[in-house]
């Protein structure tokens, strides 16, 4: 946290049109644990996450992201942020206590790219199987890819510049990297962090309110390769086989869930600190920025959005 009171990316709610297949996929292929369900939603957490859930699947007639939420340190920080967000001019509402399972009150607002973001501080604590006293490094009985956590999301929208200003000036995020048009006039991509991770949320220019992907964290390059093995074994559509990002320096594999939402197993990536400069990529080098080895984008990477 960068002194802004926002601890981390806490949860993300996805719309799925085939709930049954999606639950099976997130449980057995991604390897998350189901922690609850209600009429229209199923709740999951990764084995290394302490809170009740980090991913929610919402039964819908389409795909995409309902919202992404960040966990705030306490109620005082939440109130201050609420005030600043309203001052900025975002449409803001309150989600009341227990609207969703295990969650306390949250504030919900629409950012300039049309996405909904929430901030919250209260959520039930479940803990992890290895415990918090003299823990083993990992528990027995892991399934599928078994990532440590929900890591980040890449969202698509038109006004990347104003959205970046909102995240940096109002929410206190740091911009770790940006993609600029060659003349430096337009911001095409923006990578933002509220921690020391290379990104917690990122934006790329395109049609408003779209989801590009949800990233789950795995430990290292071999785990990315193994994730790809697990995906192919389960006949999951893999879009980009294991490679490296220039941006974030992370290692990656991209694939799609049963409703066409893009997922990523993401490893490593550098740490950034408050005094580090923002890295700039120019649009003519965006291929290398995204896929460092291939050095060019693939068509579906720009166009397959939910």
């Amino acid at each position: 946290m960068n002194g802004n009171g926002i601890l981390r990316a806490g949860r993300l709610e996805l719309r799925v049109f085939d709930l049954e297949k999606s639950v099976d996929y997130y449980k057995n292929v991604i390897g998350l644990d189901v922690t609850a369900q209600d009429e229209n939603r199923v709740y999951f957490k990764a084995w290394d996450e302490f809170d009740h859930h980090s991913l929610i699947l919402q039964k819908s007639d389409s795909a995409g992201m309902d919202h992404m939420a960040f966990k705030v340190a306490d109620h005082a920080a939440l109130e201050l942020l609420e005030y600043k967000i309203e001052q900025f001019g975002c449409k803001l509402s309150r989600i009341s206590n227990r609207t969703r399972v295990a969650e306390g009150e949250a504030i919900r607002f629409q950012i300039p790219t049309g996405h909904y973001v929430e901030l919250y501080t209260d959520i039930e604590h479940l803990g992890i199987a290895t415990g918090s006293v003299n823990p083993d490094p990992w528990p027995d009985g892991l399934r599928g890819i078994a990532p440590h956590r929900l890591d980040h999301a890449l969202l698509v929208g038109d006004d990347v510049k104003t959205t970046t200003r909102f995240f940096t000036e109002i929410l206190g995020f740091k911009q770790s990297e940006k993609i600029l048009s060659v003349d430096g006039e337009q911001m095409i991509g923006s990578f933002l962090t509220t921690t020391n991770k290379a990104h917690d949320i990122a934006f790329i220019k395109g049609p408003d309110a779209k989801l590009h992907h949800v990233g789950f964290y795995v430990d290292n390059w071999y785990e990315v390769l193994k994730a790809a093995d697990i995906l192919s074994k389960n006949k999951v559509e893999v879009e980009i086989t294991p490679t490296r990002h220039g941006i974030t320096r992370g290692q990656t594999v991209y694939f799609f869930d049963p409703s066409g939402n893009r997922n990523e197993a993401f490893a490593s990536g550098y740490m950034t600190y408050a005094d580090f400069p923002t890295i700039t990529w120019t649009e003519d080098q965006i291929g290398a920025g995204i896929f460092y080895h291939r050095r060019e984008l693939v068509e579906s990477f720009n166009l397959a959005l939910t």
């Binding site: 389409s62 795909a63 559509e237 799609f256 409703s259 066409g260 579906s300 166009l303 397959a304 939910t306």
Partner: peptide, 10 residues
């Protein structure tokens, strides 16, 4: 094609 899963419309 993109997602091969009925989500993206490509």
């Amino acid at each position: 094609y993109g997602c091969a899963s009925g989500g993206c419309g490509m």
